[in-house]
């Protein structure tokens, strides 16, 4: 299972999202590879991903970039809220 955390530039915010998504997976007792990506690299990164985590601000651009990928785009409001991320991941992966 592969999850991608996306932000505009691929550092900073996507890294925070990756760290907190790892904490959420641990809480859910699930294992997955989580990579961080920038918007420019998302089409390639998403090819074999199940879930793409991003903000609601970037979600439309992500959907456009990945085209007909099987990955589900999940919008996170608070990047530090492990409860929120756990709920979202449980819904997508469960």
């Amino acid at each position: 299972m592969k999850i991608i955390a996306v932000c505009g530039v691929g550092i900073g915010t996507s890294a925070i999202l990756k760290v907190n998504a790892e904490r959420a997976l641990e809480r859910l007792e699930l294992t997955a590879d989580i990579d961080a990506s920038d918007l420019a690299g998302i089409a390639v990164a998403a090819a074999d991903a199940q879930v793409i985590l991003t903000s609601s601000e970037l979600a439309p651009a992500v959907r456009q970039a990945i085209g007909r990928s099987f990955a589900e785009v999940v919008e996170v409001t608070n990047y530090f809220d492990v409860d929120e991320i756990s709920r979202l991941l449980e819904r997508s992966l469960g």
Binding site: C7, G8, V9, S55, E57
Partner: peptide, 23 residues
């Protein structure tokens, strides 16, 4: 420029903006 290009996604939690750019 990052915010102009990609929007206010850098506001990653209520009340908190993480301003940054590429290396």
């Amino acid at each position: 420029a990052v915010i102009e290009e990609f929007g206010a996604y850098v506001v990653i939690a209520p009340g908190l903006a993480l301003a940054h750019a590429r290396p």
